Amino acid sequence: NNLKNLLDSNLFTLIDVGATGGMDGSWNEIKKNCHYITFDPDPRAQIISSYAKHTNYNYALWSEKKDNLPFYLTKYPEASTLFQLNKTTLSSFLNSECHEQIKISKINANSIENSLNDPFDFIKVDAEGADLEILKGAEKFLKDSCLGIEVEVSFINRHKNAPYFSETDSYIRNLDFVLMDLQTEKWIRKNNTFSTKTNPQLIWGNAIYVLSKESLLKKLKTLSQEKRDLIFTKYIMILLIYHFHDYAIELCDYFSNEKKLISENYMVDLRKMIIKSMPSQVFHLLKLLLSLLIPSILICIFCFSKKARTSLVNYLKKHLVDLSHYLVRLSRYGPSNGCISG
């Protein structure tokens, strides 16, 4: 009740740039306490929101105000981009048809700093190559209020002259955010050679960053008790949405035992929330099995549609690899071992 009352009167502000794909389903846990702000210039964008408050902007973002930028519309709306597609690179992979260019239009763009007056708590950027430029246009907010970032990063030259992961990572780290996770995407080549031991090439990923512990401490020390409780609660919520349970507990210990900056009643509730949010190993295994069962059934249903069948088979292959890796880790280290690599 303490946490609910706190967030009911102080909505979590979430920015989603390239909002066609929406946020990960884990964000639904706080949708009733969230102001969802979306940006997407694609006229085909379909943004469905059930958040407490939703504000939408139908224009492109950049590091500054720019007019008449080329916008490359693709067959798959989520792949539309402000950068020219590298067809030579993309043509090597099975899903290259998703990036098929259907139109080039001219659009105007602005920066987040020019678009928003109020600060935000978290930003997700999925802008097909323009991600770093967009973050640069939000630097004031990243320094002053932002607690976490999810950004798409590239490991190959999918878009001509677009930055690689190393450039984006360096920029964000210099703002004193730490990389917590890299959700990678690997693509199978057109020869369709695949087995459970095949290791396809790393193409892109979603990098998850949170404000460093040192910067969080520095920020909290400048705030009133009420503001400290609010900011720390929002920070812990970000950690739980991305399943950083161990780090969440570590921070609770650090700020309650050593710094005593957070009110005791909120800290008790936060610890309960962390423990409650942790799924069992059995649940995780069942979830992986379900991710294989559903597409298998759909493949049978849509067996006469080559396009649907190809997409479902590729999806099935990815989750088959996830399951095999999970079972290998489980057999090597057991359900309670702290090592999750290998």
Rank of each mutant, 00 (worst) to 15 (best):
I188N: 14
L211W: 01
E226Q: 12
N161W: 07
V178C: 10
N161A: 15
L147C: 03
N108E: 01
N114L: 13
M237E: 11
N117H: 09
I134T: 13
K234I: 05
L230C: 04
V178R: 10
I188G: 06
A127I: 03
D131N: 02
I102D: 12
I188T: 12
L211S: 13
L239C: 07
E167G: 00
L147Y: 06
M180K: 11
Q225H: 10
A130R: 05
S212L: 09
I203T: 08
N157G: 03
K160M: 08
D229C: 13
S111C: 14
N174G: 14
E152C: 12
A207E: 03
L230E: 02
L202C: 10
G205T: 08
I123C: 01
D181M: 11
S195V: 13
N206M: 14
Q201C: 01
I236T: 11
G148A: 12
D169V: 05
W187P: 00
D121V: 07
R228Y: 10
D118C: 04
Y235A: 05
L175S: 10
E152D: 10
S111V: 06
K143R: 14
I208F: 02
I208M: 00
K234W: 07
E167Q: 14
D131T: 10
L239F: 07
R173N: 13
I107G: 02
D131K: 11
D229Y: 04
N157I: 11
V151M: 09
S195E: 08
M180E: 10
R173D: 00
T233H: 11
I236D: 08
N161T: 09
E152W: 12
H243R: 07
A127Q: 01
L132W: 04
I112W: 07
E133R: 03
S105W: 01
K219F: 01
E139W: 05
D144M: 02
Y235W: 03
D131F: 06
S166N: 12
D131L: 13
F177K: 02
Y242N: 09
K221A: 15
F120R: 00
F177L: 00
K219D: 10
I188Q: 15
D144I: 08
L142P: 03
K218M: 06
V178T: 07
T168E: 15
T193K: 14
T196P: 05
I208R: 00
E100G: 12
I112L: 12
N117K: 04
V151L: 06
A162S: 15
L116D: 09
K218H: 12
D181T: 04
S215C: 13
K140C: 06
A127F: 11
V178Q: 09
N108L: 00
G137A: 10
G129C: 11
L175K: 06
P163S: 08
L239H: 07
W187D: 12
F122Q: 01
I156S: 14
I241W: 02
N199V: 06
K234P: 03
F194R: 09
E226L: 05
N174P: 14
L135K: 11
M237D: 01
F141Y: 12
D176N: 13
H99C: 01
G205S: 15
L216C: 03
E185K: 13
V210G: 00
F120G: 11
I172Q: 05
L239A: 02
L202K: 13
I238W: 03
L142H: 07
L116T: 10
Q183V: 06
I172N: 04
L175W: 06
I123V: 12
S154A: 15
L239V: 06
G137S: 07
